[in-house]
Every structure is written in C-alpha cells, then in structure tokens.
Design a protein around this nucleic acid. Structure first.
Length: 432
RNA sequence: GGUGAGGUGGGUGAGUGGCUGAAACCACCGGUUUGCUAAACCGGCGUACGUGGAAACGCGUACCGCGGGUUCGAAUCCCGCCCUCACCGCCA
C-alpha cells in the first residue's frame, strides 16, 4: 500500500510511474481522488478534535465543581448542568462528523488498496511478459539434452523419481509424490540451497505453514488474492503460498534498530497454490503444481541501501544456478508484468532442454515501503522518528522447475548425472 | 474437548471513575562525579494523527488486547469478541 503523504508530495512521479503499468484511466484517477479525499479528511479531523478538546475542557470544569463541593450552591449547580448539556450537544455533533470521517477513510483505504506499487525508474514500460527486458543472457548456444532427450515427466516415470498419478490418488492433480532417488534429490537441493544461504549470512527460519488473516493481509495476499490460497475455513487459517508470507510478518508492527539491518532470513517451506484456471502444456509435469518446495530469502533493509541488497540477492541466486550448471537468463520485468506490490523485479529462468523453453525459477523483488506500510515495519536511526523499512525477497530457489531442467539437461544414455555440488548430499552421482 | 486465571509502556509490575500518557523498578540514552571499570547521583526515555514552525520544538486529539455501551468524564463499571497462560483429558 502506498503512503498518502508520499502520493501527495510526489504526485507527478507517482502518476508517471503508474502509467508504465498500463492501468486504466479510472485507476490512475484514484491518485487525485485520494489527494482530494485526504483534504476532506483533514478538515473533518480538525473539527472533531476541536470539539473533543472543548468536551475535555468542560468535563474538567464540571468535575472540579463536583469535587470541591461547589455544585451544592445554586449558581454552580446551574453552571454544571449547563456544562453537561453543552457536552451532550457537542458529542452529538462529533458523532455526525465521525460518521462522515469514517466513510471518507474507508473510501481512501479502498482506493489505496487498488493502487499498485510505483515502479522503479529502471522498469521498462510494456504490456506483458513479451515486453520484459532480457537483463542477462547465456553466452553461446543453448545446450541440448543428452540420451533420448526425454521431457522430465517421462524421466520421472522411467527412473521412478516422482509419480503424478499417485498424487492424484492421494490428493488430486498437481500434487506430485516424490519417490526414492527423486525424493533424495529433492532433499539434497533443499539442503544445498539452505546451506548456501546460511553461508551468505541468512538466518534460517522454519515458519508455520498456516497463517492467520492478519498475516495474509500483511504481505498483501488479502484482500484481493484470496483465490490464490487454500483456506482452512473452520479455523480461518490460510496455507502459505510462499515462505515470504510468514517470514516477512515476523517483523509486523515492529520497530527495528537501524544497526540490525539488513535483516537476512532464509526459509525452506512447502508452498501451496490453488492457481485456478490454468491449462495446457504450461502445466504439464512439474511446470506448475499446487504444492511445491521452495527456499526463500527475505530481507528487511534500510531504504538507503535496499537496492544494493537487491543486487546482492541477484548474485546469490546466480551463484546457485552456476553451481548447478544450469543455463539461465535474467529478465527485468516490465510495467505490465510487474507484480502488484513490487517496485522492481528480476525473474530468473532456466532452460528446459527437452521442452525447449524457459522456466521461471526465481523472482527477486524490492517492495520498498509497499509491504512495510501495510505491516507497519519501521526502523529507528538513533533518536530519529521511526521510518518504514524496505522489504525484499526472492526465491533461492523454487524446486520443481529446477528439478525439471536439471533432469532433462543431465540425462545421458547411462542415466541421469547428479550435479557435483549435490553429490555430498545425495551420496550418489548417477540415477539409473 | 473440559475447568480456571489473566491481557497496562522495551521488560517486570502498580493503578480509588476526574489531579493517570499512566507509579515504582529494570533495561536504554545523555550528563556529573571518578586512576580505569564499576557504583552513586541528576536528567531524558512511547506511538499515530492533526496543527503551527526553516528547524529545535510547541499545541491539540487518540491509544492501558479489539469492538461497542453507561457517564458531564472510563485503564478503572457493563456487554460482545480475540488472544495468552495453567490444570485435566486426548495425542505426534
């Protein structure tokens, strides 16, 4: 959620930035609407507080009359009664103002919820994913798969690594069951990613996988993206779509010390996504599933250097992909494809050698104060007033598509080779 | 699932319906004293919104789990909700 004061002070920039997102003129109009409503809001608050101040003054006066016993004399008694009547009248007026105020505030709030984050100046304009800027690409030819060049879902069957039919039996489609060396490989990747993050200074977190409404609201899954999450209705808990949700919320309503920043956290969790309404070859195999594993890195950063931290996170993710020898490219998302809450996002895609297409495996973003404003995560520099922190996060990495690309690329006529860095974790180097 | 207790500032913890934004202590920050450290002493020490100011800061309003009610006036009384803790039962 954008800050009203920011919108007011930077109206032109906000409008210019938001235009990159291809918003309707109606939504763009919210900017001025919010500024207008905020003016009305202030005027009303002024009136209300003036009246309340008068009520407090009168109440004190009446109290004084009673306390000192003066109210027993006729003159003072009349004064007290007159005071009471005035307070009653004032309160009636206040109630009226407050009703108006609450309507205006709700309206401001609703409009603010509709406004996405202002894209960073680096964000290219564009309508959708075809307009994303290729920020970094592999040098040379894209590798071709060895062996029979099977897609990963066939490799999964051939080597008994994962089983979709079994998942359907137990739960439903999109819930793969990993078995034997497939399971071991999965576990190896998780441990490898975690260890790398810990070495890079991240603190490991194992958060709850179910979160309450306040938490889901904090990172912006609620109110609009309700359909994305599984909901345990009886207890009103949501299954997390990403570890970002519980981990970022650790600091909800907190004021952290500037010296503690950047706060770097990493968490492995399963992620649950309902992803209603997607069909076709994009969802085949591990390309898109309802439950998947992911290692997520989260940072709470000082606004002064949050973009340095973003760069640091990019290199971290690059390091992982290099270690696994997977060909990848980095996209800088354009305004049309940029997530609602993000100011700048880089997507990492790995090459699926058998499917001959790019698969998104990581999304690294700086949300600036968009999330922290909603969650009220602030920091204090010395004795200064608290200011909102910047929040950042990135996948490091999402497992299924890494698994897919890795299996396809490393297949040979003898079997599937395990990347060297994973062998200490798997204790086998070939899947036969 | 059953029963009981309780939710006050960073922490512990007082608080009679008006003098309580809230005692006291601890922590923290600044200072004085002091061979050094420590101790002692003095002072400061919440947040949000509104308003004035270049700023320092001043003024106003709100906040003692959340929401509502009673009252001229509520941390204090009443109602609803949420949460926490303890014990019992069940259980990985």
């Amino acid at each position: 959620m954008l800050e009203i004061n920011y919108i007011k002070a930077n109206r032109e920039e906000v409008l210019k930035g938001l235009k990159k997102r291809n918003l309707s003129t109606e939504v763009l109009g919210y900017v001025d609407k919010i500024i207008m409503l905020d003016g009305k809001r202030r005027a009303l608050i002024g009136k209300i507080e003036e009246s309340k101040s008068e009520v407090n003054r009168l109440s004190k006066e009446i109290g004084e009359l009673f306390r000192t016993g003066q109210a027993k004399t006729t003159e003072s008694a009349e004064k007290a009664i007159a005071g009471k009547e005035m307070v009653t009248e004032l309160k009636r007026m206040i109630t009226g103002y407050e009703k108006k105020l609450s309507k205006i505030e709700t309206s401001i709030q609703n409009h603010l919820y509709e406004l996405p984050n202002v894209p960073n100046s680096l964000v290219p304009s564009g309508a959708g994913e075809d307009d994303n800027e290729v920020f970094k690409k592999v040098s040379g030819e894209l590798p071709t798969p060895g062996g029979d060049g099977l897609p990963h879902w066939e490799l999964g069957i051939k080597y008994k690594l994962f089983d979709f039919k079994l998942g359907t039996k137990i739960t439903g489609s999109g819930f793969p069951v990993f078995t034997a060396k497939g399971a071991a490989l999965q576990r190896a990747l998780i441990s490898f990613f975690l260890d790398k993050a810990i070495k890079a200074g991240y603190t490991e977190i194992i958060p709850p996988l179910l979160v309450n409404e306040a938490t889901a609201r904090g990172t912006g899954q609620l109110p609009d993206k309700e359909g994305q999450m599984y909901h345990a209705e009886k207890d009103n808990f949501y299954l997390i779509p990403t570890a970002e949700v519980p981990i970022t919320n650790i600091y909800r309503d907190d004021i952290v010390n500037a010296a503690e920043m950047p706060i770097k956290m990493v968490g492995y969790t399963p992620c649950f996504r309902r992803e209603a309404g997607s069909y076709g070859s994009d969802v085949k195999g591990l390309n898109r599933v309802h439950q998947f594993d992911k290692v997520e890195i989260v940072q709470i950063a000082n606004p002064d250097n949050s973009y340095d931290q973003l760069t640091e996170m990019l290199s971290h993710v690059e390091g992982l992909l290099n270690d696994l020898n997977l060909p990848y490219r980095i996209l800088r998302l354009c305004g049309g494809d940029l997530g609602f809450t993000s100011a700048l996002t880089y997507d990492f895609e790995v090459w699926s050698a058998a499917q001959k297409k790019w698969l998104e495996v990581s999304s690294v973003s700086n949300f600036e104060t968009f999330q922290s404003n909603r969650m009220k995560i602030r920091y204090r520099e010395g004795t200064e007033k608290p200011r909102l922190v910047h929040t950042l996060n990135g996948s490091a990495l999402a497992l299924p598509r890494i698994m897919a690309a890795m299996l396809e690329l490393n297949q040979t006529s003898e079997g599937i080779r395990v990347p060297e860095v994973l062998v200490p974790y798997t204790s086998f180097d070939l899947i036969q």
